[in-house]
Amino acid sequence: MSHPIMFDDADAALQRIREISLAFPGAAERVSHGRPNFFTTKTFCYYGGSERGDHVGARHDTAILFRPDPADEPALRQDGRFWEPAYLWPAGWLGVDLAAAGGVDRGGVDWDEVAELIDASYRVTAPKRLVRELDALSGRGSG
């Protein structure tokens, strides 16, 4: 069964998420369950989703869903902006609605924070060789 497309390709926030996500080594994009997701061997970021327990129609179309760094997860869970996404929450995923977190339309999104969340999710999900490549590119490598 095919899922309906639940995003607008011209969405400025999606374009920014693409820019951030596709800059990671080995990253690609595909549409799954009607929404863009960014992956290497595993998905590290979804664009759009719904909260755990939401009913049909309660969507967050300008949200990112991500796997937080385990060290940051407790603090993120205490921040009211973050929520457990439907279906993904048992695996430790969180969501944040960009519209609610500062306003996509008003230019209030903290894109540095969004990039940090996506970076952490990439590091949790990507193969170690790609994380080493990222570290080498960003100068974070050990040595």
Rank of each mutant, 00 (worst) to 15 (best):
V104L: 11
R132F: 11
R18I: 04
S142G: 12
L137N: 12
D112N: 14
D9E: 15
A75P: 01
P68S: 08
L137A: 15
W89A: 12
V96G: 02
A63H: 00
L98Q: 01
E113F: 15
D110M: 05
L98I: 09
T40G: 02
S121N: 04
P90E: 07
V131Y: 09
E51D: 07
S2T: 14
V109M: 10
H33E: 07
E133S: 09
R123F: 07
G102E: 05
T41M: 08
A136Q: 13
W89D: 10
R18W: 12
L76R: 09
A10W: 03
T40A: 13
A120T: 08
A13N: 11
F24M: 09
Y46Q: 02
L22C: 07
S2D: 10
L94A: 03
V56G: 03
Q15T: 04
R81D: 05
A28Q: 11
G141C: 04
A115T: 08
R81S: 05
D9A: 14
V31F: 14
E51T: 07
R35P: 02
S138I: 08
L117W: 06
A115Q: 06
A71R: 12
R81T: 03
W93V: 08
A120K: 08
L130F: 05
D105I: 03
H33A: 07
S121C: 14
D97N: 12
D69P: 00
